[in-house]
Amino acid sequence: MYEKIHQKVDVQVIFLKDRPVVRSFIWKNSHYPISSVNLITRASKGQMPVFLFSVSNEKGAYELRFDTDNLAWWLEQIYYK
């Protein structure tokens, strides 16, 4: 089941070679470890480039957005079984 969220979150990311890898994020004081980065897409909001990270763990799939102008992370959507 999908649910739209659109809330700011704290995200832990590491860079492996030239690829960012999302390790975990914190939403509503809960820690969500990420086991897989499934898709990274570059889009834009007006002139601002944004990056969308489709990630997942064993509990669900999540879409995170990174805004490049203010370096903010957003949780856009979640999917859980």
């Binding site: 499934n38 489709s54 997942s56 879409e63």
Partner: peptide
């Protein structure tokens, strides 16, 4: 397929 790539549960 893009949706299935983004979400392994589907």
């Amino acid at each position: 397929s893009v949706e299935q790539q983004a979400n392994p549960f589907i």
